[in-house]
Write a protein that binds this DNA or RNA. Structure first.
Length: 483
RNA sequence: GCCGAGGUGGCAGAAUGGUUAAUGCGACGGACUGCAGAUCCGUUUCCUGGGGGUUCGAUUCCCCCCCUCGGCUCCA
């Protein structure tokens, strides 16, 4: 297991990571409330924690990664009512769309997406335990957590209960003993999905679902908890109070990893502002590889400016530059294979290539500094710049050696997925070659009108040409992740 | 008001108590092209919100102020 360090919000410091039960690591990330289309900010959550999970696994830990789905809550119910749809069906629909989107983004590391409604028995059990311990009280079919009974409340976020401004955004519920108390079980209202409970039919409050799920799947104490920084308070603070209150053990979470917000030209991305770019649209505009690159091209804790007119185009250009040598390598290897004869690498270059993955791990092991790793990868692409013209002289093994840093990026950062490889369709390739020959002959007799006509026709068929010194290269459009 | 995260070149965005403050985008120039594109090479010396302090030295550490973003108890 490779040691690494990580910033923990609770202590406000970067600390060496020490799992509770090595090599096992439990990680929970607050997932979607699928009441509407996911937006580009949600995509950052999916991609960043995916990269975290990939790295932790690469470093030899046995990670179990859970991302919950809040498929029943006020927003889901309200929205379903507006649309005259069933709430659970509505959230199921948006969750499916979410899965489709994140799969395009190469998010492959989540072990389980538990739905809140599948954990109602665990939720009820936890609420009962809290009532039994005197930390929660029943009022008219609702159950509230009594914050005053949990002295550590506020430790995660640094909030002092007496300094809060009650009702700043949310109406204070008159049934509460204190404004800071929060509901953990809600009595049924007409037309809402409900479940039986000792306090009558009702449904879970928001915060408990997470601790009930993690209690069941990860135990009373686990290692990593992620989510947007906007959830730090009250949601994560409430999770601490619930989880530690119910189990009597502290801390609930070893390391809290909070993700910076995606900012739309200095404003938060929000439906009310009307500046939301849906995740699906961002994927369509940028291409999934470039969008993933965009998210990882900043430190996860920093806010990240998302300018729809610039960010995605810039990410796409950057990724093309970064991957250009790798694209060439894969073209050569895809055609001739590893056994291809040719020159071997100068020893220092071979050594540099072999050493890169370890260096990249080292950079990432410092609080998941994906941006640092990407900068180093750009350095590698620049090193290969002068070699790209000579790739056709190198042996297959030499080419594979040069590709090591990119394979690291594919494994850990999820860049350069296999699907962006040139399509190896030999029969079509021979047809393309026929057209290229015709075009070469046209050019030889200076018939450029005919040459351009052939080039345009090939382009229309998805074949991109590059005239280079002496030779014309071609590849399928989309090979660089450009649909 | 309180809590938290931030403020770095035209833009995005790293890092650091100390020679030229990464990297990318953009821009400009060049190579290659019939042209275009892609690719490659080079240039882009005057960039760390403001004011104090500590220090031989501060962008980094401390204090005050300004600004932005997130949160303030079922919230986008």
């Amino acid at each position: 297991m490779r040691p690494f360090q990580v910033y923990d919000t609770r202590t406000g410091t970067v600390r060496p990571f020490v799992p509770r039960n090595p090599p096992r690591v439990g990680m929970f990330v607050c997932g979607l409330t699928p009441y509407a289309e996911a937006h580009a900010g949600h995509g950052r959550v999916a991609v960043v924690y995916d990269a975290v999970a990939r790295a932790v696994r690469r470093w030899g830990y046995r990670l179990f990664y859970v991302q919950n789905v809040t498929n029943v809550d006020d927003k889901v119910i309200d929205r379903a009512r507006e649309l005259n749809r069933d709430p659970l069906e509505l959230s199921e629909h948006h969750f499916r769309a979410w899965l489709t989107a994140v799969e395009q983004l190469e998010v492959r590391s989540v072990n389980l997406y538990p739905f809140a409604t599948d954990y109602v028995p665990e939720i009820v059990e936890q609420v009962e335990e809290l009532v039994r311990r005197g930390l929660a009280y029943v009022a008219d079919g609702d159950v509230y957590y009594e914050v005053a009974k949990f002295p550590r409340y506020g430790e995660l976020s640094g909030q002092r209960v007496e300094a809060l401004r009650p009702g700043a955004r949310v109406q204070v519920d008159p049934k509460k003993r204190a404004p800071e108390d929060f509901v953990i079980w809600k009595s049924a209202k007409p037309g809402e999905p409900t479940w039986p409970s000792p306090w009558g039919p009702g449904r879970p409050g928001w915060h408990v679902e997470d601790t009930a799920i993690t209690g069941r799947l990860l135990g009373p104490q686990y290692d990593l908890h992620g989510g947007g920084t906007d959830l730090k308070f009250p949601h994560h603070e409430a999770e601490v109070a619930l989880g530690e209150g119910a189990s009597g053990r502290s801390p609930l979470v070893g390391y809290w990893l909070h993700l910076g917000m995606l900012e739309m030209r200095g404003e938060k991305m929000a439906k009310s502002v009307g500046n939301v770019v849906s995740l699906e649209a961002a994927i369509r505009i940028a291409g999934p590889e470039a969008l993933r690159f965009f998210y990882l091209n900043a430190h996860y804790r920093s806010p990240l400016v998302f300018d729809p007119d610039r960010s995605l185009a810039e990410a796409r250009q950057s990724l093309t530059t970064l991957g250009a040598p790798y694209l060439r390598l894969r073209e050569e290897l895809g055609r001739d294979g590893l056994a291809r004869p040719g020159r071997e690498l100068p020893p220092d270059l071979a050594r540099a290539a072999t050493a890169m993955p370890e260096q990249l791990d080292g950079l990432l092991a410092n609080d998941f500094a994906t941006r640092e790793a990407i900068a180093a990868l750009f350095g590698w692409s620049r090193t290969l710049g002068e070699w790209t013209a000579k790739f056709d002289t190198l042996s297959g093994t030499a080419l594979a050696t040069l590709g090591a840093p990119y394979r690291w990026a594919a494994e850990v950062l999820g860049l350069f997925p296999e699907r962006s490889l040139p399509r190896p369709t030999a029969d079509l390739s021979s047809l393309v070659r026929v057209a290229l020959d015709a075009r070469a002959r046209a050019r030889a007799r200076n018939d450029f009108a005919e040459a351009d006509r052939l080039r345009d026709a090939l382009a229309a068929a998805g074949v991109v040409l590059e005239d280079d010194a002496g030779a014309t290269r071609w590849r399928w459009r989309g090979a660089e992740g450009n649909p």
